[in-house]
């Protein structure tokens, strides 16, 4: 899923300070799971902002709404009738949701309420870690299911590098060396023969190097 973290309160206050009517728009998908922009977080932020502006003597109407997804037309259409009645929409969705909302409602300012961080997994409640960089050409079949692109600081495809010590990366003793994990896993699977095969140069044109990407699936298009 896409992992995000809430923006600092001062930053949010600064972006919405000139509004008279604000909609805080949550998303029921990834940002709900990573507890950054779901219905609960919308409620907490709305309550906090109401208190802040009331204390400042400012009267601002702050409404709350949480959509099933902000990255799909059908759910974003649910606010069609109300979107342009607000000075701004503060979206707590990932960057995709913020942009899709902004593209759909051109007359309303759409602001981000979270920082979108990475594609990751919930290791435990309150701890999310990166697993994928969406490079567009998955190498997991060759690396024991552990991604060197997202989990190796250097994105080394034939590792480990000289910075690997006791299974940890040279950038931090807290960070596992992805290639150590790969070697351990391939050993456990009895597939170290695959490790000996040199990975060819990776085609990075499917990554961001090729500019904004798109996926087309013609058989499901209408």
């Amino acid at each position: 899923m896409i992992v995000a973290s809430p923006k600092p309160m001062e930053e949010i206050i600064d972006t919405v300070k000139d509004c008279k009517k604000l909609l805080i728009l949550g998303c029921n998908e990834c940002v709900t799971v990573c507890e950054a922009g779901g219905k609960k977080e919308v409620g907490v932020l709305a309550s906090a902002l109401r208190m802040y502006f009331a204390k400042q003597g400012r009267q601002i109407q702050i409404d709350e709404r949480t959509l099933e997804r902000q990255c799909d037309h059908e759910y974003l259409e649910e606010i069609r009738d109300i979107a342009d009645t607000y000075d701004a929409i503060l979206s707590l969705a990932c960057g995709v949701g913020v942009q899709f909302t902004a593209e759909k409602y051109l007359a309303t300012v759409v602001l981000p309420g979270v920082n979108t961080c990475f594609l990751g997994a919930t290791e435990e409640r309150g701890l999310w870690t990166e697993r994928c960089q969406a490079c567009g050409a998955c190498v997991l079949a060759k690396t024991g299911g552990i991604c060197p692109v997202s989990r190796c600081a250097k994105r080394v495809l034939n590792g480990p590098c000289g910075g690997s010590t006791n299974g940890k990366c040279e950038i931090s003793k807290e960070v596992d060396c992805a290639w150590q994990l790969i070697v351990d896993r391939l050993t456990a699977l009895g597939k170290m023969d695959e490790y000996e095969q040199i990975a060819p140069l990776k085609d990075w044109s499917t990554d961001r190097a090729g500019g904004p990407r798109k996926v087309v699936k013609e058989d499901v298009q209408s």
Binding site: P8, A48, K55
Partner: peptide, 8 residues
């Protein structure tokens, strides 16, 4: 923390 962040 939230209350402190909005001066309450």
């Amino acid at each position: 923390k939230v209350l402190d962040s909005v001066g309450m």
